[in-house]
Design a protein around this nucleic acid. Sequence first.
DNA 1: CTGTTAGCGCATTCAA
DNA 2: TTGAATGCGCTAACAG
Lengths: 376, 376
Amino acid sequence: MYRAKRFTVPTFRENDYIFGEVALAATIKDIKDRTGLSLATISKYLNGGNLLPENREKIERAIKELHYEVNEMARGLVTSQSRVIGIVVFNIANVFTCTVLRYLGQRIREAGYAAMICDSQDDERMEADNIRFLLGKKVDGLIVIPVAQTSEFLDPAVRAGIPVVLLDRSLPDRRFDSVKINNAEASYQAVDLLYSYGHRRIAVIGSDSEITGRERLEGCLRLLRDRRTELPDRYLKLGRHSMEHGYESMKELLALADPPTAVFLGNFEIILGAVMAVNESDRSCPGDISLIGFDDLIISNLSNPRLTLVVQPLEGIASAAAELLFRRLEQEKTLPADKDADQDRERQCVELVLPARITEGDSVARRIEEGGDRND
Amino acid sequence: MYRAKRFTVPTFRENDYIFGEVALAATIKDIKDRTGLSLATISKYLNGGNLLPENREKIERAIKELHYEVNEMARGLVTSQSRVIGIVVFNIANVFTCTVLRYLGQRIREAGYAAMICDSQDDERMEADNIRFLLGKKVDGLIVIPVAQTSEFLDPAVRAGIPVVLLDRSLPDRRFDSVKINNAEASYQAVDLLYSYGHRRIAVIGSDSEITGRERLEGCLRLLRDRRTELPDRYLKLGRHSMEHGYESMKELLALADPPTAVFLGNFEIILGAVMAVNESDRSCPGDISLIGFDDLIISNLSNPRLTLVVQPLEGIASAAAELLFRRLEQEKTLPADKDADQDRERQCVELVLPARITEGDSVARRIEEGGDRND
DNA sequence: CTGTTAGCGCATTCAA
DNA sequence: TTGAATGCGCTAACAG
């Protein structure tokens, strides 16, 4: 395998791109030939070592002229690390995901790493594939918003000794660091807001098939218990975090003889569906029905009235996850192969729980007669 | 292909994961030691060659027992290709981007490649960095939704001989394949719809600082010229594709003594801002003002009334871009080092222009008096 | 069909 | 400070 096409660079001229001809990427060998220095010296330059200003200059010039870029594959092969963080998201076509991704990307880049993003498309098999793929690429760490409900798919990462941080959804077996919001608490507050505004006929459209959904549900139920407010079965709509579920459930609620005066909407997709159903009906929000939703930022601007929402501190979540991961990475460097320390670390996985806050819009009406539930 | 879990006690040494201890990743050397076969045979197995069923089985067992995974860095170093497609997007926190990303990811994976996504965060410098980074990672191809208005930042890719496909926004110097919709034509149709519904006082909120914006503008203007309809300066709101611009512009339009009866909204962010402004005013859509927007899917469900929108065939765009790229990749294999062919190829960059379609909602009112522009 | 051998581009010992 | 040598894990000739 020899190099067919190659620029012999004229002494003074820049090694510019020539139309139609493809140059093989320059290697440190090329810049060795050009500078007369040895491979080791050049390598030292690339990795921030000390060398004579004279030589440094020579190398820099050669690099510029040859358009040299480090071959990360070769470097990675030697160092067995890639300075790449793998990110696996349950679903990339999703406002929540995208926003988190943006912040994660920022933090990761600031730390001098790069991000490699994989989309699991809500599919557990694909999720497991993604992990294996990323491991094959020798990522240094993993940030995962999981679709699976157990953490077996992460076994290969454990085996490879690569730190993992779970985002948004923690897994029941606490083997990994995780960052999320207090879904139960936030939901508790949200329903409490409805209650404090005088609502007594409160319905919940949520999910019992997703972890976050179950947590949010728990908060709602606890508040209602604490306030000794009944939640009749017909007011509790359980399904998935999907637009269809939101739409159908809201339709059913509106069709009741005694419809609720307020509804808790468990996530973004449910909000979308539910608002659609209200819009299609002859009811209006908040006149006929009050709404409080979970997740999201964009729609609060667009919807009329502006929705009252539980908003997650996405930037905070992303920052925390990144920091957690980098701390592990540091930790690994300092504690190289200490078995006992490893043992400890296994146990000490940290679960960070951030607070969410409620931003009030105009979608929750105040009902004057405290404790009453009559309309008007 | 199901294979029962079976305990084969290894003859040499357990290479399994031990709690708290990190096992080094197995290499083909390990599986060579285990099977007694040579490296070449194993490599052949890995790359789909023919071997004796007996040996195949041995290797498969060893792989499973050792949890072997190919080290892509080593493989890439040899083959000098990574089977990774780099994707650089102008802004990842964006519905358009995310949706395209989802489809791109699917296509790329179907083709046996993986995707490496980088976010330029609307910043040209970061965009250039992303390209260099991806090149360092030896991606086989690049799909780019650019923020820059010229293609210089792609020079390193050209130099490296790596195919590039531009998405959504083509660049004035046509050096690269590109896929986009016919922005001008779609805008023409959109404004034509307003016209055909009887509107004569039509305003445009758009962007002249982005390529897509300029193209859309051109379509609007052409239609109005063709219909001999005037566009007074006060009806033409030029700025950036931002929510602020949409919001401010719509406020100004509504404050006019003779406000337009219909407004063309140049992109998703502008729609958001404009709808917000309408909601905050005492006007209603479509009663007082008709709206037609460009881009987006989600909000048409949420908004009341449902917006009439120009919808881009996102899946089609993504598929086309991926196919274009893979075609180039194929092409490279078949035409290895033919200089003349390279020359030709350079010239023959294909610019795919896909049609967008209009989905009607309820945001455009029919105005009965054809040609009239009085309100009521 | 299988084994031997020689690098891919780089970092990293050790000498000098 | 610099240089020569070695190997990371894998593929790709080529020979058997």
